[in-house]
């Protein structure tokens, strides 16, 4: 039940608490408010659920019940590079399950999980609506169409290289200038 938030998440939640008044407190605001929190924090920490319940004057149980009903809401933080594999119909008939499996194998996690270094997470999504490009996978917001199992490793490597380059750049900044 108690989840330790990192300082950044802690302050984001504090900030959200102060803004809630502007969102109105009718019951119908529940889902838009949860969406706003998820948008800003990438997930719904348990405390956020209690904060929302208090704001709307309903029980935390009810908020939890609603949040767990919808696919959009998650209760654990996603990876920095969230991988979403589309398992829509068009992707399925073109072998999406094999793409998903390949991500799982390379990252050594299952769908719904996050790597221990919190770099990657894998989720399946129902359909992102790019059926003509099937099979499709998303990393972050970027859509990769016409996927093949052999492309998986390259995509993961690209994320890792980008991260290393960013780190090197920031180190250079610290030491150099």
């Amino acid at each position: 039940m108690d989840m330790v938030l990192d300082p950044q998440e802690e302050s984001a939640l504090k900030q959200i608490e102060t803004e809630l008044a502007d969102w109105g407190n009718e019951r119908s605001r529940l889902i838009p408010i949860l969406q706003m929190i998820q948008e800003r924090m990438d997930f719904l920490p348990p405390r956020a659920i209690e904060v929302v319940a208090q704001h709307l004057g309903i029980s935390a149980s009810e908020v939890f019940g609603v949040a767990t009903f919808y696919n959009q809401f998650r209760f654990t933080p996603p990876g920095k590079n969230p991988v979403k594999v589309c398992l829509g119909t068009a992707c399925h008939v073109r072998g999406a399950d094999i793409i998903l499996e390949n991500f799982e194998r390379k990252l050594e996690i299952k769908e719904g999980e996050t790597t221990t270094d919190r770099e990657f997470s894998i989720d399946r999504v129902a359909c992102v609506g790019c059926c003509a490009l099937a099979p499709v996978a998303l990393i972050g917001e970027i859509v990769h169409g016409k996927m093949a199992p052999s492309k998986v490793e390259g995509l993961i490597m690209r994320c890792q290289i980008e991260k290393e380059m960013a780190e090197r750049a920031s180190r250079k900044k610290e030491t150099g200038e």
Binding site: I49, E50, S59, A60, S61, E62, F64, G65, T68, F69
Partner: peptide
């Protein structure tokens, strides 16, 4: 119904995995 007229129980999850739950302090 609790003292504050709120329910402590809810359906949680969805579909086959739906359960009765309570949540919070």
């Amino acid at each position: 119904r609790n003292h504050d007229n709120r329910t402590a129980l809810t359906f949680a999850g969805r579909g086959f995995h739906t359960v009765i739950r309570s949540f919070g302090r």
